[in-house]
Design a protein around this nucleic acid. Structure first.
Length: 441
RNA sequence: CGGGGCAUGGCGCAGUCUGGUAGCGCACCUGGUUUGGGACCAGGGGGUCGCAAGUUCGAAUCUUGCUGCCCCGACCA
């Protein structure tokens, strides 16, 4: 993409309304614009990141055997009356009336809707297990939206819903999602810690929040240091699932609300105790027959008797992750994108548009990299060098390829690693090879 | 929802206390000089001062009401 043909409204100064670093950087980097409190428009650069995260989430869900659907943002109130949550949900639920005075709502979540779909279509235990997910916008009318897209009212979320014949089977569905989540966050370039979460009225050990570490995170996490080193499990969903997740559940890991200092000190040696701040980016839990009972979602079991199915739900805050990744990956100059979610992997900076040799080398590099299927942003604007460097640092592409008249005359390209700032000068072929993959370190 | 703050050109702000023809920096447009980390000179465009009512000869400024946004707290992917 040529920057001269793109839409990238960067800001030199910090907008007054943004306090938290990710919010400031998203506004300055031209990723989003606020429309109302907690409601954002996604500009091209931000949308690219959102889509990349979404794609990784989708791939890992599919690998784990979940099946994608797409439910609407607006739902009829009736099914929420069936589950009893229409009254319970309170003012967080945005309620809407259509022209025929029918009660609708902008969905804050989709348990009722998916349960309705499932119960109307599935009659036998032979069609279980199933896990259906979608990636859709939700709305929760938060009392106080803040932190940009991290605590918005409208947000993009992946939510999956599992259907099983009994608790033992539901546990398997839960473990699959547990693994998928570990893999998803690792691929996004994040360290996510699963912490035991409140299971509410159901009880049991089947609820975890996934927290990514960031200094500006909202919640405090207490965990064993070794948790931070463990690699995500392989995508082997027919193997021993319990064994695959054991490394992540056997060590102490709790958020501040469930933290017990005595247990922490007893279970974790002093040098292994980690206290950090984090952002909740995923939540999985088993809720049993909470919705299937009141909503009559039943299937015939092997003995012919009808059983209300056992359900679980599994959320990932896709739009929140955009902010969360920035919280975890930035420096004083701007964003530092992980390779997997960078809106473009490489920024080519032509320092002297109009100079024949500089133009020629820049164009050739841009064409060669694009040919390889890489996402390249080519800055050939007639701007000062300083402005281009600052913008490129701000938007945080992993590699910068800088081409000026002196280097161009010698056929040389300067490569800058955005993360550690290291620069090296390479010839054309070596530069192409280097830029084709993520920077090391 | 309780407490606090803000609203003046695209962005950041001054002016409000003490009423008198709306200003600064950046950005933008034109011309020129510049050109490896956010240049310089000259000229120029753009604002019913959040909305409404009131006080006054006169309101960005005083009064009342409303709306929007931000921050702190209790709640959430």
């Amino acid at each position: 993409m040529r920057l001269t043909d793109y839409f990238l409204p960067t800001l030199k100064e910090d907008p007054a309304e943004a306090q938290i670093v990710s919010h400031r950087l998203m506004l300055r980097a031209g990723m989003v614009r606020q429309s109302a409190a907690g409601i954002y428009s996604w500009l091209p650069l931000g949308l690219r990141v959102l889509r990349k995260i979404e794609a990784i989430v989708r791939e890992e869900q599919n690998l784990a055997g979940a099946i994608e659907v797409l439910m609407p943002t607006l739902q009829p109130a009736d099914i929420w009356r069936e589950s009893g949550r229409y009254e319970d949900y309170g003012k967080e639920m945005l309620r809407i009336t259509d022209r025929a005075e029918r009660d609708l709502l902008y969905g804050p979540t989709n348990e009722e809707l998916i349960t309705q779909i499932f119960r109307d279509s599935v009659r036998s235990y032979k069609e279980l297990p199933r896990n259906l997910y979608h990636i859709q916008w939700k709305f929760r009318d938060e009392i106080r939206p803040r932190f940009g897209v991290m605590r918005g009212r409208e947000f993009l979320m992946k939510d999956a819903y599992s259907f099983d014949i009994d608790e033992a089977a539901a546990r398997v569905a839960y473990q699959k999602m547990f693994i998928a989540y570990l893999r998803t966050f690792a691929r996004l370039g994040l360290r996510a810690i699963p912490v035991a979460a409140d299971t509410g009225p159901i009880g049991g050990d089947l609820s975890h929040e996934f927290i990514i570490l960031a200094d500006t995170g909202e919640s405090e996490v207490f965990c064993h240091a070794d948790l931070l080193q463990r690699p995500a499990p392989a995508a082997d969903y027919s193997g021993d699932l319990a064994a695959a997740i054991a490394p992540f559940t056997e060590l102490y890991a709790r958020s501040d609300e469930k933290h017990e200092p005595e247990v922490f000190e007893a279970d974790v040696p002093a040098e292994k105790r980690v206290t950090a701040r984090g952002i909740e980016v995923g939540h999985i839990f088993y809720f049993g027959q909470k919705y299937s009972e009141p909503m009559q979602c039943r299937v015939a079991g092997p003995d012919g008797k009808e059983i209300a199915v056992h359900g679980g739900s599994y959320g990932i805050g896709v739009s929140r992750l955009v902010g969360g990744i920035i919280e975890a990956c930035h420096d004083d100059a701007g964003i530092v994108w992980p390779w997997a979610v960078a809106p473009f992997q490489i920024g080519v900076i032509n320092l002297k548009p109009g100079d024949a040799e500089t133009d020629d080398l820049s164009e050739r590099l841009y064409a060669a990299l694009t040919q390889k299927g890489l996402d390249v942003l080519y800055d050939q604007r007639d701007e000062r060098a300083g402005g281009k460097f600052s913008d490129m640092d701000l938007i945080g592409l992993p590699w910068q390829a800088i081409i000026g008249p002196r280097g161009a005359a010698a056929g040389e390209i300067e490569i800058k690693n955005r993360k550690n700032g290291e620069k090296q000068t390479l010839d054309f072929d070596a530069a192409c090879a280097m830029l084709a993959g993520p920077p090391t370190d």
